[in-house]
Design a protein around this nucleic acid. Structure first.
Lengths: 250, 250
DNA sequence: CGTCGCTTTGAGACTCGTCAATTAGCGTGG
DNA sequence: CCACGCTAATTGACGAGTCTCAAAGCGACG
């Protein structure tokens, strides 16, 4: 009930995966991909609520989301939980475990999901042999750092409404890149989980949704969200939505 | 005045560096270290306030702090600044640039400093040939992710006082690992920069210092800090100060 | 010795957290 | 198929914690 469930699916193949443009295979020539296929020999199915790994578990593998979604979180001593990642199709998780070969967070499925198991020791070995794989692994590690910095910017400088707007737009973009509707999707996290992710309470999140619905920016029923005025949402998120200009130090 | 200054120092050598236990050379056998020496052929001296790189600059190298310290930060559209890193001796910076080969933050020296220049393309190449170097690079990337997650926990769940206590203890630990006094050091960041790092205003930071001094936890004169009651500080930071226990999902 | 930047301190406003009560939705079992 | 119970979500009232604005103090440096 606590840990992962489900049997292994038929052997997956990165070379044939429709998510390869988001995941590890990016930039790897077809003939090298077969070597990655051999490495990723297993998938794990998770039911909603199942844990993929727990804080402290030894690192055996990192994981790519095949379908569904997961959250990862860490706990403070006093039992509060900080969601540090929301992982959807084609995204990797478990990267924070590489440092000392133990998972530094806990990952739980937000819905029935399936992940590909990338045994890490072998991935490292292969990435030393396949430059394009090495490149992509580094890219993904760096991207994670960058995203975390963006979250720090949210939590550090933005008011509640702006944080939520930024979060929704980011999610919207990631979903639409994967072929889903940009303005109509299902939130897989509860108000409490969203709050944890954004450094807010569940009540504040709920109130914000109500208010944004009231003002016609979006409509939300349970976790079904429709963005009715994307421009307004972008405006709330901070206008330009582009990369900030070069800054002047000092 | 804006960008880096100072001439190149005599050729540095990782194999002889006293900081090698914190930096890239960790775990690399002596005979391989000479190859790293060849790669790190340059150092840059920075005066307080000098920028090492700017947001958007093409990634040429990542950097190891040889002495001194730097902050890195990103800007939001409305001109606010979020400090995302404080880098002291032996720590690497620039890792967020790997994803798209452009720096995603700006790095500025907090005091007169010197950094080693690690040309990234060559580092990648070498790390494919030296497994222990690859291992350490991955460790450092992962560690950065982990630290960012800790910061998210701070900004997301802690009150101002606790954030500051956690920050001071973390800094204290990093300094003492490098042979400096654990309970007496100089803050290289202004109240404003500390506030930015912790998601607070400079006034709040200043008030916190005053209050902690009042209550005998520390004494601070300008940026000279003395922790007079480390246990009390640890208590404020959340007791155990150990890694949290394994969490129960759901 | 004066200037400038950083820091301190105060007063008041406002956002958001807390506590509490109510409602809505959903699965379960009678 | 409906009643029940549970969890998630909503809404309100209130207060605490920070932010904002403002003024004054302090130090460093030329």
């Amino acid at each position: 009930m606590t840990t992962q469930s489900g049997p292994t699916s038929p052997p997956p193949r990165c070379s044939a995966c429709s998510l390869s443009q988001f995941c590890l295979p990016v930039g790897i020539p077809q003939n090298e991909l077969t070597r990655l296929d051999q490495l990723v020999a297993e998938r794990i199915r998770l039911k909603k609520g199942d844990a993929l790994y727990l804080y402290g578990d030894p690192l055996r593998a990192i994981f790519g989301v095949r379908f569904g979604s997961l959250k990862s979180y860490i706990d403070s001593e006093d039992g509060r939980e900080q969601v540090v990642g929301l992982h959807i199709q084609g995204e990797l998780l478990g990267l924070d475990a590489i440092a000392d070969e133990r998972h530094a967070s806990t990952a739980v499925a937000l819905e029935d999901s399936e992940v590909c198991v990338v045994r890490f020791a072998e991935l490292e070995k292969l990435s030393a042999q396949v430059p394009s794989l090495q490149r992509q692994l580094h890219r993904l590690l760096s991207l994670e750092i960058r995203n975390d910095h963006r979250m720090l910017l949210s939590l550090g400088t933005m008011r509640a409404e702006q944080r939520l707007a930024v979060f929704l737009l980011n999610l919207s973009e990631r979903l639409s890149m994967r072929g889903y509707a940009a303005n109509e999707f299902v939130l897989r996290m509860s108000r409490e989980e969203i709050g944890s992710y954004l450094g807010l309470t569940l009540e504040t999140v709920s109130r914000l949704f109500s208010r944004l619905q009231q003002s016609g920016v979006l409509s939300i029923k349970q976790r079904r969200l429709k963005v009715t005025d994307p421009d307004a949402l972008r405006h709330l998120a901070g206008e330009s939505c582009q990369a900030p200009a070069i800054s002047r130090p000092r």
